[in-house]
Amino acid sequence: MKYLKIYVLRSRLLKDGNLAFFKVKNLQFFDKNFFVTEIRRYLLLDLESWNITNVMFFVTNNLKNTSTFHVVHNFLGLEELKQSLLEITKKFKLLRFKLCSKSYQGNKFFAVLNAFEVKDFLSGDIIFPPHLKLLNSRELLFTKISFNITLKILLKIEAKKASFQKPIKRLNLIIEKDEFFDNYMIFDLTTDGSVTPFNAFIKALQSSNLVTLTNA
């Protein structure tokens, strides 16, 4: 027995794959507000996303020809970098990721960025494990202006429920007001690319325990 009928409203001209509208027809009588709230809560609160949770900086002095890397704290201003470490940390935390392999079960990754050369370092320069894909690879992270030091940055990436940098960028909903045609609920979803709107919506439906999804 069907409880819901879902239409995915998408124009073919729409290039942005992260934006979708869902029109839901309520075939079974239950409180629409309750249903909508449940879906919204899941999407905005419980949907997991991959975020950088910790950034560590290691520095070695090339002038002394030593290969030992020392940990430096975030408040340090290195002359060899254009930006302060505090600013760089801030930029790292804005990076978005997508898990490529569905088989991966863990909830933690480590990534590294080796800064030997003198150049602008982009987010694409970070070395990630194969399961993870970076979504914004053209982000400028920092500029190194001297060969005097080598910088190594270690990043900890964890899957966490959305408290910071949520995967759903925007969520809007409309419940038809009219007494006679009140069977529709429209969800307007925009994601950051780590998850497709359709997948996110399906996950939300699954978790809501209001409907049972089948392949049919």
Partner: peptide, 10 residues
């Protein structure tokens, strides 16, 4: 004048 060097220190 023209900036010939710019960093966090100077």
């Amino acid at each position: 004048g023209k900036v010939i060097y710019s960093s966090l220190k100077k």
